[in-house]
Computed example of a mutant assay.
Amino acid sequence: MLRQFHKMHGLGNDFVILDGRESPLAMTEALARHLADRREGIGCDQLILLEPSNTAELRMRIFNADGSEVESCGNASRCVVKLTGAGTIETAGGVIHGDVTGAEVEVSLIEPRFSWNEIPLAYAMPTDPVPMGWENLDRPYAVNVGNPHLVFFVEDLDDIDIEGLGPAIETDPTFPERINVNVAEVGDDGIRLKTFERGAGLTRACGTGACATAVAAIRARRLSSPVRVTMPGGTLVIAWEPGQPVTMRGDATHVFEGTIDL
Rank of each mutant, 00 (worst) to 15 (best):
L31H: 05
G258R: 11
H34W: 13
F175R: 01
C211W: 05
E29M: 10
D19C: 06
P232K: 12
W134P: 01
L236Q: 02
V237L: 15
L223F: 13
A65R: 04
M60L: 11
S115V: 05
E22Q: 14
S224V: 13
H149K: 04
I119C: 06
G190K: 13
I119M: 07
T101D: 09
R39N: 09
I238D: 00
L83F: 09
H34K: 15
M60A: 08
R38Y: 00
S72V: 01
N75A: 13
I260A: 12
E69P: 02
A200T: 14
A26E: 12
E57H: 03
D128Q: 14
T91K: 08
V143N: 00
P140F: 11
H6T: 12
V95F: 08
R113V: 06
H254A: 11
I191V: 13
I260K: 08
N144H: 09
G146N: 01
V70T: 13
R221M: 11
A92D: 12
E197Q: 13
L11M: 04
R3M: 12
L109T: 00
E170P: 04
D172Y: 12
R222I: 05
T247E: 08
A26Q: 10
R221S: 13
V215T: 03
L165P: 02
D156N: 15
G93K: 05
G201V: 09
R3Y: 14
V151S: 02
E51Q: 15
N13V: 07
P173K: 12
L193N: 02
V183G: 01
V95K: 04
